[in-house]
Amino acid sequence: NIFRISGDVAHLVSIIILIHSVETKKSAKGISLKTQLLYALVFITRYLSLLKLEFGSVYNTLMKLFFLGSTFYSIFIIKKYTREITQYVDDFKIGYLVAPCFVAALVFNYKFTVIEIAWSFSLWLEAVAILPQLFVLQSQGQGDLLTVHYIFALGLYRAFYIPNWVYRYFTEERLDIISVAAGVLQTLVYSDFFYVYYNKVFKNSLKLPA
């Protein structure tokens, strides 16, 4: 459905913006390595099913491989331009994010199996994985425009999934309570950023010619 596709496209665009931005500037300034490491953990735990060699669809499999690969690649290039990283604070204690997500995964899951717990863990972790990046953005005061576009596209992805879940509930009678709860939490985490983004990008672009 249209919401699902839009969400996936936003996700693709976000990672392309990120890699393009770091590659062209040859600098990872303002990019949180910790957020990227968390995303790597998110994708590893969510796509464990790849190991079972159960390929639901070509589309899903290719997208999963792309998200895994591109996240590892982004970590690689951020590390490559790592000198700048020491110049700003990326000292968010990610243990405080990972531990509660693990507890949440143990409490909320559909079956007490490794795959199901990992799946739930990945949903909760994804919801909060952007926090180190938002923290870096805030400590910098003024964020780079590309970084801001990257965060916006990433937030848009999960926001698009919410109408997708409503749509699937009515058309397929399927509802994943954990996905929805984590997805709503994620969109709330982004909501403050969305407001700042709206003021910064849309209002500024309207009054460009001085």
Binding site: R4, D8, H11, S49, G56, S57, N60, M63, K64, F67, Y110, E116, W119, Y161, N164, W165, R168, Y169, E173, R174, L175, D176, I177, I178, S179
Partner: peptide
């Protein structure tokens, strides 16, 4: 009945 995981999503 409605609570089903959506492992077909990304």
């Amino acid at each position: 009945k409605l609570v089903k995981n959506l492992h077909d999503e990304l």
